[in-house]
Design a protein around this nucleic acid. Sequence first.
DNA 1: AACTTTAATCGTGATATTACGATTAATAAG
DNA 2: CTTATTAATCGTAATATCACGATTAAAGTT
Lengths: 109, 109
Amino acid sequence: MGLSKTEAFSELHVELAELAKAMGHPARVAIVEFLVNHNACVCGDIVEELPLSQSTVSQHLKALKQIGLIDGEIDGPSVCYCINKEKWASMQSKFQSFFSNILENNNCC
Amino acid sequence: MGLSKTEAFSELHVELAELAKAMGHPARVAIVEFLVNHNACVCGDIVEELPLSQSTVSQHLKALKQIGLIDGEIDGPSVCYCINKEKWASMQSKFQSFFSNILENNNCC
DNA sequence: AACTTTAATCGTGATATTACGATTAATAAG
DNA sequence: CTTATTAATCGTAATATCACGATTAAAGTT
């Protein structure tokens, strides 16, 4: 169906999946990296850097913003996009736990 | 297009995105968790646990196997799926670096 | 007020994903 | 050899994603 049965899974699993999905495209990974490594954070700067059209970049920014990984602040006619540190810290800690659980408690047959 | 322009991005970004994408569905998160927390690892056991059909679970298992996060070993008519610890350790370290870079080097305007 | 710049949104098309039932292939059991 | 069990694959349908150009909206500039 293309519609995942999210209601059938635990909240944690759904949240982890949503966060992972948000990073599940190289363009979004690249956008985040760009925001971190450059002081620039204006949409236009990202469009220049990436091999994607303005509307496509805007869509990816929207996805990242929707889940809370970045914030967007209007600055004149431009928009300054910034990393939401709290959200990233929370994401890191959640995946940390998940990874640790896997690496520590796994005992396959 | 639904076809991501992977060739236009760095290998690291593509790899991170692929790994994230693999975890970008609650069913796959749940499958991994199940494999870790139960000694059972047979496909049928997972099907019983999840609210999904056998064919759908098989598809998710295939996706996880394809990227190397789990291994599948034939055991009679059944198949025993196991966590690939090396792959998970590598994934953890890659995301670790990514998260750390974000939390340390970010300085928004 | 008219114009420019910037980014969001709209409309659209192509491809991917998710899901299921049905079928098939492989192994074990009788 | 026949039958049962298990899981992969096939076929199909519905929905989502990705991408782009065109348009719109909002804010500055002249």
